[in-house]
Amino acid sequence: MAASIKDDDDGDEMSEINVTPFIDVMLVLLIVFMIAAPLSTVDVPVNLPGSSAPPQERPEEPVWLSLGADGVLSLGNDPVELAALAAALEARTGGDRTTAIFLRGDRDIPYGELMTVLDGLRNAGYLKVALVGLESVGTEGGAAP
């Protein structure tokens, strides 16, 4: 008895192209480009500086100036008015205008309020201002005091 092998392919070439994987790949690429295209455009040209400076040591008793989300300005733990900021800093630093001021601003405050505080520091003669942020985990040189 002879065994016969059934061949579904009768030797003709398949004339159909399975385009489903091709369409899937194209749709994924379309989504990637739709997301990436707006991120790659820049409306305002900015030449950002690079920094390879190591994290700086903070003084033993830093002067902390904080601007909370509610707009309250605090020198250390004491609230202070912007008009009285120069006198409060003079009393805290002993009149030494070369003292670095560590400015902490809440992420939800408007940029204009932060600039008003920076202008107040400049008008008071304190030009060494360190902006304090969160230290990024896993990055080199991203340390904040």
Score class of each variant (00 low, 15 high):
residue 14 M to F: 02
residue 91 A to M: 11
residue 143 A to N: 11
residue 41 T to K: 14
residue 42 V to Y: 01
residue 130 A to S: 08
residue 98 T to K: 11
residue 53 A to H: 03
residue 54 P to A: 15
residue 47 N to V: 13
residue 118 L to P: 00
residue 87 A to N: 14
residue 91 A to E: 15
residue 119 D to G: 08
residue 103 L to N: 02
residue 63 V to S: 04
residue 110 P to F: 04
residue 73 L to H: 05
residue 34 M to I: 02
residue 119 D to L: 12
residue 127 L to S: 12
residue 125 G to T: 12
residue 18 N to C: 01
residue 81 E to Q: 13
residue 58 R to W: 00
residue 15 S to R: 03
residue 13 E to P: 01
residue 19 V to A: 03
residue 31 I to D: 00
residue 133 G to A: 11
residue 108 D to H: 11
residue 69 A to N: 12
residue 10 D to N: 07
residue 101 I to E: 10
residue 44 V to Q: 05
residue 39 L to S: 03
residue 131 L to C: 04
residue 2 A to E: 07
residue 133 G to F: 02
residue 31 I to L: 15
residue 40 S to K: 08
residue 48 L to H: 04
residue 144 A to G: 07
residue 62 P to D: 04
residue 126 Y to A: 04
residue 14 M to I: 04
residue 80 V to I: 15
residue 132 V to E: 14
residue 54 P to M: 10
residue 25 V to D: 03
residue 19 V to L: 04
residue 38 P to I: 08
residue 36 A to F: 09
residue 46 V to A: 10
residue 134 L to H: 04
residue 76 G to V: 13
residue 123 N to Q: 14
residue 126 Y to C: 07
residue 89 L to F: 08
residue 37 A to L: 12
residue 45 P to L: 09
residue 86 A to I: 06
residue 83 A to M: 03
residue 14 M to K: 02
residue 52 S to L: 08
residue 71 G to Q: 13
residue 113 E to F: 09
residue 55 P to E: 09
residue 40 S to D: 01
residue 49 P to G: 10
residue 50 G to A: 07
residue 59 P to N: 06
residue 114 L to C: 02
residue 74 S to M: 13
residue 21 P to R: 02
residue 125 G to S: 11
residue 10 D to V: 05
residue 126 Y to I: 09
residue 139 T to L: 10
residue 97 R to L: 15
residue 49 P to H: 08
residue 127 L to H: 12
residue 28 V to A: 14
residue 134 L to V: 04
residue 60 E to T: 11
residue 98 T to N: 12
residue 67 L to R: 04
residue 77 N to A: 12
residue 136 S to I: 13
residue 90 E to I: 01
residue 29 L to Q: 00
residue 10 D to Q: 08
residue 111 Y to K: 12
residue 99 T to R: 13
residue 35 I to G: 00
residue 88 A to D: 10
residue 103 L to A: 03
residue 42 V to N: 05
residue 131 L to H: 08
residue 52 S to C: 06
residue 139 T to Q: 09
residue 37 A to I: 05
residue 83 A to D: 13
residue 116 T to P: 00
residue 51 S to W: 00
residue 61 E to Y: 11
residue 141 G to Q: 07
residue 30 L to Y: 01
residue 94 G to F: 11
residue 136 S to W: 09
residue 27 L to G: 09
residue 126 Y to P: 05
